[in-house]
Design a protein around this nucleic acid. Structure first.
Length: 897
RNA sequence: GCGCGAGUGGUGAAAUGGCAGACACGCCAGACUUAGGAUCUGGUCCCGUAAGGGGUGGAGGUUCAAGUCCUCUCUCGCGCACCA
């Protein structure tokens, strides 16, 4: 070891207590109706019938990668573990689980390379992760461990998919309902028509739409998984390609996903990210007739008040009417432009964003408000996937339109006057309408209302709300994911249609394969398993699999009843842990901690599934995660993001070897506020490690420790045996604390308690340090005070706290076998009262003296004492005193002229 | 470009509008020691021998009093990004 003498024998203490906790099942969480063994420390703490209030504290479960744990993982885990332990001590029934988000690309890519089944890779990686996580002494209830790749788990992922498939969103009730409640229109008579009508409305549906195809990964990706035109995983190019895919109708929930943010305790920035992603915008749809054709083009605009300023119209190159309305003379140019736009990846489109391109179609549209003919163009600055894929261009009051109009010499007509006057070209704010007929003189909000009413009356437009949020592309061309519980059949006309498998067919297991690559003709790997695909004559299985998000969308529900073979979660367990029907209980998960990288993807998807399950009566709250906190990234020692290529990755195993789990946990929390980005510093670990050493020395007898050290080197007895022989310091005595000692203790209790409630772990730890710094110099150390200190230390550094607690309790048969359920001490305000207090004396806000006075000194006397101070006098002599401010117990400020 | 955060010692950071820098790291000095990269004691924002002065990215403002509140501005980080 390169760090000199060990501060205390953490290498013996930590495995010892981890073994005790495992043997004792110390951290089992209990469900309603469960039998709690009388000997269990929970039963001893809570002898009364019924369960105490719940506290559900959740970590974002990890993807068990081959690289093992990273120091970033335990940051959030330590924070939640501290709170879990704190809540147990304050009397809650704590649910604190862990599991594995184990489907995913790396195991599959490894399988493609080596032929090793992803199951094997996954199991090995889980074993590594579990070993590393357990070495940190987290108080997880491992009996509830989940693994998304376990058939007993993904059975229920598939089951939830079937609920989505069997439901539609009823706009009248604003919620999901069984597809059976969907009223078929009278003209839907044949079986095929009825099926088509239903299939077009299910929450899980098949669409033939342009998707993000990643040739390198051999799969499609959701919009969320594409960053700057490249795959989020691997950074490979992504192109748009029309394909038949499963979609989930998350857009139906846009409004609720947005509104329900108001009722949950998430950070402002996180809510903003979700709001931006949902992207609600209010505006109007306006229909423009195409001149000389029986065709209407609907545009979406947030500025209907500028309709008089529309001087041309733009369709996205993919718009379905482009073909029909293009004049023969323009056909070649339009086709060429479409071909060019289609060949561009999203990346190229954004890269070329600076320079607008487009082509005239030759056709014109009629502006409904004034009958004016305006040219119709196509341009790729208009997105096919947003709004209606078509816009009315108002170059005078839209930057993009202005740029385009200037490039192609299109007219610019001012219709809004800027409040400050001057040239309003390019002015996009609110002003007053001009050159706009009946809108003239109206302010922008008034004009919007007036024109919308006019459009509605004429039947050529209406008020609408548009969302950026797209439906969720839910299928992947992968092996290592949940197969869909769906088969394909042919109807009387020979057309393919899909059908759900019954719940009894679940789980649908993936087939065995020798080769995990997609088929040569581009089919998903599952298509290689011919026997698996062919269910019976004319019935074939769906060969896509679900995305990795599926398993993580609901795992927090499974933890509540992880081994239930008959249901996703038992309703009584679900209601208990989600706090339903209990006054004062938090609705949903009490605290969810994880990285900000999941701010939109996972959290939006999980909220969506939860709402569907809520509508269908399977869960009892409308939101899953009541309070959510993002832990900040831990950077390398060089202040850069940790990465293999930079060589600045800190391996937790190495830190644990050198300093132990308690020091590691403590350091991760001592670095700074949880949410903040902060660099790792190994010397900082030594600081907290030394603190733990001081805490150890506060308790143990020096001579017996020296004997222990010598025993270890001679090696005649085992380390565990020798550890038992370390005695408590003789200074620890059964005496009441002095007022001074009690003040030190109660100040520490107060600070640690308040800081834990506010999740200020770093300052809580500093309070513990202050206590030890004080107590180490006490000649007599009252046992009761040290015992209370250990209950405060326990959440942070549980192994050392348990070891010292067991020594403190040795010979006391009534003492609990673990600190985990020992009640959290309450501070006594009476112990904190001071008899004297130091008062700052300021002159004009500048500190001139400090006076020690009795706390209850009346303000007038305090004022007199301040004025009498020798240090103050020179600053007030010969000056007029304007005012004297006296803040009791704090300061006196003398304002002089 | 838009949205959201954050700027405090050599470093990580503390501070209900009330004594800026708690608690640590590092550094300096000392004690103990065969030894110290262990431990203990003291010191450590800057200028100044001191008295004193200056100081929380910058400029204003409110206040008896501002790191904290308000206005403008700069820098960095994160997110979104032709979203009509």
């Amino acid at each position: 070891m390169a760090i000199g003498r060990r501060q205390y024998p953490f290498d013996l203490i930590e495995p010892k207590w981890q073994a005790v906790w495992e043997r004792q099942q110390t951290f089992r969480a209990w469900n309603p109706g469960e039998n709690i063994p009388v000997g269990h420390p929970f039963a001893q703490r809570h002898p009364e019938p019924g369960l105490p209030p719940k506290y559900y504290v959740l970590d974002m479960f990890p993807y068990p990668s081959g690289a093992g744990l990273h120091v970033g993982h335990p940051e959030g885990y330590t924070a939640t573990d501290i709170l879990a332990r704190y809540r147990r001590a304050t009397g809650f029934n704590v649910l604190h689980p862990m599991g594995w988000d184990a489907f995913g690309l790396p195991a599959e890519q490894y399988a493609i390379k080596t032929g090793q089944h992803p199951r094997q890779t996954t199991e090995a990686n889980i074993a590594t992760f579990k070993r590393q996580i357990q070495a940190l002494g987290f108080s997880y209830d491992w009996s509830r461990e989940v693994d998304t790749t376990d058939p007993e788990y993904f059975k229920w992922s598939q089951w939830i998919f079937l609920r989505l498939y069997q439901s539609w969103f009823n706009p009248a009730t604003n919620r999901a309902e069984s597809i059976e409640t969907l009223v078929l229109p009278a003209d839907c008579v044949t079986e095929e028509q009825q099926r088509a009508y239903r299939d077009a409305r299910r929450l899980a549906y098949v669409a033939n739409a342009p998707v993000n195809w990643c040739p390198e990964l051999g799969t499609v990706l959701s919009n969320e998984e594409v960053i700057d035109g490249k795959s989020e995983v691997g950074g490979f190019p992504v192109v748009r390609k029309p394909m038949q895919q499963w979609m989930l109708r998350i857009t139906a929930y846009a409004e609720r996903l947005l509104n329900d943010l108001d009722g949950i305790d998430w950070s402002h920035s996180l809510k903003e990210m979700q709001r931006n992603w949902i992207g609600r915008s209010e505006g109007a749809e306006v229909e423009f007739r195409v001149a000389g054709a029986d065709l209407g083009i609907t545009v979406f605009t947030t500025r209907p008040d500028t309709l008089f300023g529309a001087t041309y119209m733009v369709l996205s190159p993919e718009h379905r009417f482009v073909e029909q309305l293009t004049t023969p003379a323009q056909q070649a140019a339009v086709r060429e432009y479409q071909r060019h736009a289609a060949g561009k990846s999203d990346l190229e489109r954004t890269e070329l964003a600076k320079d607008k391109t487009g082509v005239f179609t030759g056709a014109s549209a009629v502006n409904p408000v004034n009958g004016e003919l305006i040219p119709i163009w196509i341009a790729d600055y208009v997105l096919a996937t947003y709004g209606t894929g078509a816009i009315m261009a108002v170059p005078a009051h839209d930057e993009r339109d202005l740029e385009f109009a200037r490039k192609f010499n299109l007219p610019i007509r001012l219709v809004v006057q800027a409040p400050g006057g001057g040239d309003a070209t390019g002015f996009v704010g609110d002003g007053v309408s001009v050159n706009s007929g009946f809108l003239d003189g109206l302010t922008t909000p008034e004009a919007k209302k007036a024109i919308t009413a006019w459009l509605q009356e004429k039947g050529v437009g209406r008020r609408t709300i548009n969302y950026k949020l797209r439906d969720w592309l839910f299928s992947r061309q992968r092996y290592w994911g949940e197969p869909f519980p769906i088969v394909w059949k042919r109807d009387a006309t020979g057309a393919l249609y899909h059908e759900a498998l019954p719940d009894s067919a679940l789980p649908v297991l993936p087939p065995k394969l020798d080769d995990y690559k997609p088929t040569p003709d581009g089919q998903p790997p599952l298509a290689r398993a011919r026997d698996w695909v062919a269910v019976s004559e004319g019935v074939t299985r769906e060969t896509n699999t679900m995305p990795q998000w599926a398993g993580s969308c609901w795992y927090y529900l499974r933890y509540q009843d992880a081994r239930n073979p008959a249901a996703m979660v038992d309703p009584a367990a679900e209601q208990y842990w989600m706090g339903t029907g209990v006054a004062g209980a938090t609705p949903g998960v009490d605290l969810y901690v994880g990285g900000a990288e999941h701010a939109v993807l996972h959290l939006l998807y999980a909220r969506f599934w939860h709402k569907v399950l809520f509508d269908l009566g399977h869960v009892s709250t409308c939101e899953p995660f009541y309070k959510l906190v993002n832990q900040g990234l831990i950077l390398g020692e060089d202040g850069q993001k940790m990465s293999k290529s930079r060589g600045n990755v800190v391996n937790p195993d190495v830190v644990l070897d050198a300093y132990g789990a308690d020091a590691f946990r403590l350091y991760e929390m001592f670095m700074g506020p949880l949410e903040m980005v902060k660099p790792w510093n190994t010397q900082g670990v030594e600081g907290v490690y030394r603190f733990l050493g001081r805490a150890w020395r506060l308790f143990v007898d020096e001579d017996s420790e020296t004997a222990f050290e010598q025993g270890l080197t001679t090696g005649t007895a085992s380390g565990a045996e020798l550890l038992e022989q370390v005695r408590l310091s003789a200074a620890i005595q059964d005496v009441p604390g002095t007022p001074e000692q009690l003040k030190t203790l109660h100040a520490c209790i107060k600070k640690v308690t308040e800081d834990l409630d506010g999740m200020r772990f770093n300052t809580a730890i500093s309070a513990l340090m202050v206590f030890v710094n004080e107590a180490i110099s006490w000649e007599v150390k009252p046992r009761g005070i040290l015992r209370d200190f250990l209950t405060l230390l326990q959440p942070f550094s549980p192994h050392l706290a348990e070891e010292l607690f067991s020594k403190l309790a040795a010979g006391d048969p009534g003492s609990p076998a673990t600190l985990a359920y020992v009640p959290w001490p309450k501070y006594d305000a009476a112990r904190l009262v001071e008899t004297t207090v130091e008062i700052a004396v300021q002159v004009n806000g500048k500190l001139r003296d400090r006076l020690v006075v009795p706390v209850d000194l009346p303000a007038a006397e305090l004022e007199a004492a301040a004025l009498a101070s020798d240090k103050v006098k020179p600053f007030i002599e010969g000056k007029t005193i304007k005012k004297i401010i006296v803040v009791p117990k704090k300061l006196v400020n003398i304002a002089v002229a």
